[in-house]
């Protein structure tokens, strides 16, 4: 292996690692706030990428139907409760978010031929279509079980994951898609070509991470999420409802997932079930951070990306095995070094 190949592989590793890092952050966030191990995180990556691919192919993405359906379920669930408790004041916002919004998206899709839209609008539309599913999935699948054990929530996650994969197959078919590169620019670095797309992924991931940092450190809603993760009872006493925190962090996680999917869509071919493996690698990063530390999770995810890339050179058939085996020494090390402190739950 000469320097040129070394750099090329490193470039690949950092690109993928940046995506894994984003997903790892989303997983840590969801677990810290809600105690949910969010296996379907990867499905949001695939949905984002494939929705964009559908739009670019001039097709109406199937995700719009899912958005409408989920919105209706949420309206039925929440609406019945609001009517029963006589809280009519909240009905308009419920209808706007869960019915008005999906209908508006559908109307835009049918009114404008999606294939002719500029790329930026297609990206925006993909985000607008898939991100609202985050809080909807939370409402439908997880909110009724708030307070359940981590294991029960994990089982629900597996179910949501399987359902989303099945729907993905239905919406997008079995063939994979790859979107055209956002940029064709290419530089030269020490004799190896440096793709503009790589730089874009790394820069966009870094910007998103900086944005998240700002959100959590500087805004009251970000602090409220951290507060819920730290002390649930304390947060409730401040009027921060666990369901509010749950919806907020599912929105963020969905946005991170879709954003990642759009970023990698031009780099790898994405199939309806590709999200799982991508999400799982983010999960390895999150585990390295003990599902608690954001910076360690991000660094761990970057390490996963690099390890995957270099092992694909030496032992390409085993690259997944090598990446996932990494979890064993990490878990061993963690279980030996950390005292087990069971958090007191209400």
């Amino acid at each position: 292996m000469d320097l040129q190949i070394f750099l090329l592989l490193g470039q690949d590793g950092v690109t993928n690692g940046a995506i894994y890092a984003l997903l790892a952050l989303a997983l840590v966030l969801i677990f810290a706030v809600t105690r949910i191990i969010f296996i379907p995180q990867g499905e949001f990556v695939a949905y984002g990428a494939l929705t964009l691919a559908s739009l670019q192919a001039g097709k109406i993405p199937g995700t719009v139907w899912l958005l409408l359906a989920l919105g209706l379920v949420v309206i039925v669930l929440d609406g019945v409760q609001m009517l029963r408790e006589g809280r009519y004041g909240k009905l308009p916002s419920l209808l706007i978010f869960n019915l008005g919004w999906p209908l508006l998206c559908a109307a835009v899709l049918f009114a404008l031929p999606p294939g002719d839209l500029p790329l930026a609008l297609q990206v925006l539309l993909s985000l607008l279509l898939v991100v609202p599913m985050g809080p909807m999935v939370y409402r439908v699948a997880y909110q009724p079980l708030a307070g359940a054990s981590v294991l029960v929530l994990l089982i629900v996650s597996v179910a949501v994951h399987v359902a989303m994969i099945g729907l993905g197959l239905l919406f997008f078919g079995a063939e994979g898609s790859r979107t055209p590169a956002f940029t064709e620019v290419s530089f030269e670095l020490a004799g190896a070509p440096l793709q503009g797309q790589t730089l874009l992924v790394v820069a966009a991931s870094a910007a998103l991470i900086a944005g998240l940092y700002f959100f959590f450190e500087r805004t009251l809603y970000g602090k409220a999420l951290r507060a819920t993760a730290m002390n649930r009872t304390g947060a409730r006493l401040m009027g921060i409802a666990p369901t509010l925190a749950g919806k907020l962090c599912f929105t963020l996680a969905a946005a991170i997932g879709v954003f990642s999917g759009i970023l990698i869509a031009p780099i790898t071919t994405i199939y309806y079930d590709s999200g799982f493996l991508i999400g799982l690698k983010g999960f390895v990063g999150a585990i390295i951070g003990g599902l608690a530390s954001y910076p360690v999770a991000a660094l761990g995810a970057l390490l996963v990306g690099l390890l995957e890339s270099y092992s694909s050179f030496w032992a390409s058939a085993y690259k997944e095995v090598i990446v996932f085996t990494m979890i064993i020494p990490v878990l061993l090390w963690r279980s030996l070094t950390t005292r087990h402190v069971e958090e007191e739950e209400e």
Partner: peptide
């Protein structure tokens, strides 16, 4: 039930969250 890993000021500001 304080938010142990947050500053005094952030704890106070969260009191005004609602």
């Amino acid at each position: 039930e304080l938010f142990a890993e947050m500053s005094v000021e952030d704890n106070l500001l969260l009191g005004a969250f609602d």
